[in-house]
Nucleic acid binder design. Structure first.
Length: 571
DNA sequence: GTACATCGCGCG
DNA sequence: AAAGCGCGCGATGTAC
């Protein structure tokens, strides 16, 4: 029998509350929400002990208002849990889920303020019982009330998932999203192993000796002096695009902005040192000494992951720009002695997802094997891989002009189902209609401003603005179904991998830890002797994820997994 | 002083 | 070489 351990926390209590008064209450219930034993009162800082005891004896699915708020404290106390249902994450998905059972709960959730326009969580005061819950349920006056609120929402969420094939998919999404919350917190807890000495070495190599904050590093200062001389602009601050643009125009360089890629087109002596300056200036400001001081502690970089933080279901992150670690500094991501990094990524995930979504057998055939773009090239682009790739990316992103636009008719003739699906999604968006991922994550409602402008636009210029916005919405919905379903595949991949790692750990094998995730790429920090075992688990998890989502279909989702000492050695 | 917009560039 | 999608973040500059 499936058991759930519902955790309710009092509105004013946080994990570090004083001993003496109950800070939380835990209730074990069955799938119908019926109590299986008397509620357990949690006093002071004893939540980890209570959770550890129940986890060991019952293996329940835990029900938390927010894993992001509560799991870090448990991890710090050495307590891990296997399965969870995160009320907040589930609420956010159900809000826009087209397959959700209509009813009072869904209506009330949809009536809540749009979370995508709310302030970021880290800028808000400490959470109450649950974000937004004050609007859903009356503020609880005691523990019993808090517990009843959580139980009621839990029951309502379960009831909102219909017992249909689509409902089963939605249920999988909710479970995967919740598991993701555990994984995100566990990755933050583990941290990415970071070699500060190596990072300092590469900074010194590029920028020159370290100087105090606020002083321009030596190599940048040298280049700045060259730029001032070449542009005959003695006071120029090259960090200011406006100043730089003026100085370049004065020197007779006809540009309208200072973007690096546009500068490469221009023939002028200043371009080379300017591009060199931009390159190292970026390193210095984004991932320089200040970054290391601020974000790396005890040899670990610990970004916070915001599960479902992107509209499509991708993860966002907070702190240190974790999702943009430049290739330039990846040599500083280095395994501890005796350990290695296992770096794995799903090859060309999005077009493969499109093949699965659209059941396009021709595209599935091209996707057989490691290089999908070469497969497309051989099928219809005279073996020209570059053209095949541009065409495919254009189809998924909505390119209409240039190379990509010209290649579209050919792509559509070769893969009518795949291209037809993304064109349908774009048409939905242009019409102001929603679309959904394979597992049922729906697009947010259309911004009210556009909806109103659509019905009111009178002048020709207003009409044009509305149409431009519509095409933009179409590109968004076109990409949403692909990017969002790819995010679901990746979530299932990690979830499957986590289960296997945990099973290994239970069996006494130190399988190491997931330490980093980036859309279609994962990194593990593992004992060297377990590397090959973990590589196998990574592959097995990818196969399991593909089948979990799509069942038996003729689309391959190959992953590459390499064993390295440092991140720069991967691909 | 804070808040916000813009530019530019890093990642998938 | 970017374009067409999705992000985070630092420096600068302006408004209040």
């Amino acid at each position: 029998m499936q058991q759930f351990a519902v955790v309710a926390t009092h509105s004013i209590s946080q994990p570090e509350s004083e001993a003496g008064s109950a800070t939380a209450v835990v209730q074990l219930v069955d799938a119908a929400g019926t109590a299986l034993m008397p509620p357990v009162q949690v006093y002071g800082n004893s939540l980890p002990a209570v959770v550890a005891e129940l986890e060991a004896s019952r293996r329940p699915r835990w029900v938390f208002d927010s894993v992001h708020d509560w799991y870090p404290g448990l991890l710090s106390a050495g307590v891990r849990i296997e399965r969870v249902h995160d009320l907040g994450l589930v609420r956010a998905i159900l809000r826009n889920a087209p397959y959700a059972e209509p009813g009072g709960y869904i209506d009330s959730v949809r009536a809540l303020a749009d979370p995508s326009t709310a302030a970021p969580a880290h800028l808000l005061p400490p959470a109450r019982v649950s974000e937004n819950q004050g609007e859903l349920f009356s503020e609880p006056k005691d523990q019993a009330g808090a517990l009843e609120n959580v139980l009621e929402e839990f029951r309502a969420q379960r009831a909102a998932v219909p017992e249909t094939e689509r409902g089963a998919r939605l249920g999988l999404l909710l479970a995967a999203e919740s598991a993701g919350a555990l994984i995100g917190a566990e990755m933050t807890h583990a941290g990415v192993p970071w070699d500060v000495a190596e990072h300092h070495r590469l900074l010194a190599e590029a920028l020159g000796e370290r100087v105090p904050a606020g002083v321009r590093p030596p190599r940048m200062e040298e280049l700045a002096a060259q730029l001032r001389a070449l542009l005959d602009a003695p006071g120029l601050n090259p960090d200011s695009p406006a100043e730089l643009l003026k100085a370049m125009n004065r020197a007779g360089i006809a540009v309208s902005n200072t973007r690096a890629w546009e500068l490469t087109e221009i023939k002028h002596p200043v371009i080379e040192p300017l591009l060199a300056y931009k390159k190292i200036a970026r390193l210095a400001t984004a991932n320089g000494y200040a970054w290391v001081d601020r974000w790396v502690h005890e040899g670990r970089f610990r970004p916070e992951y915001i599960v479902g933080g992107v509209v499509t279901g991708r993860w966002a992150s907070h702190g240190g720009g974790a999702l943009q670690i430049p290739h330039q500094v990846r040599s500083a991501v280095r395994a501890d002695a005796g350990k290695v990094l296992v770096v794995a990524d799903a090859a060309q995930l999005e077009p493969r997802i499109l093949a699965a979504l659209s059941r396009d057998d021709a595209l599935a055939t091209a996707a057989r094997g490691q290089d999908l773009y070469q497969g497309i090239a051989d099928a219809g682009f005279g073996g020209d891989r570059a053209h095949a790739k541009i065409a495919m990316l254009g189809a998924m992103y909505g390119a209409t002009t240039g190379e990509s636009g010209r290649l579209m008719p050919k792509l559509k003739a070769t893969y009518p189902r795949a291209v037809g699906l993304v064109e349908w999604a774009a048409a939905q968006g242009e019409a102001g209609a929603p679309v959904a991922t394979y597992l049922g994550r729906g697009t947010p409602e259309v911004p009210a401003a556009w909806r109103q402008a659509k019905s009111r636009a009178s002048s020709e210029s207003e009409q044009r603005a509305v149409e431009t916005e519509g095409r933009s919405r179409g590109r968004f919905t076109r990409n949403f179904i692909v990017q969002g379903t790819a995010a679901e595949w990746a979530l299932c991949w990690m979830g499957e991998l986590r289960r296997r790692l945990n099973a290994g750990r239970t069996a006494g094998i130190e399988t190491g830890e997931l330490v980093f995730f980036l859309h279609d790429e994962i990194m593990l920090h593992v004992p060297a002797e377990q590397a090959e075992t973990v590589v196998e688990l990574v592959h097995a998890s990818a196969r399991a994820a593909s089948e979990l989502l799509f069942g038996q279909i003729p689309v391959d989702f190959p992953v590459t997994a390499v064993v390295v000492d440092s991140y720069d050695q991967a691909k």
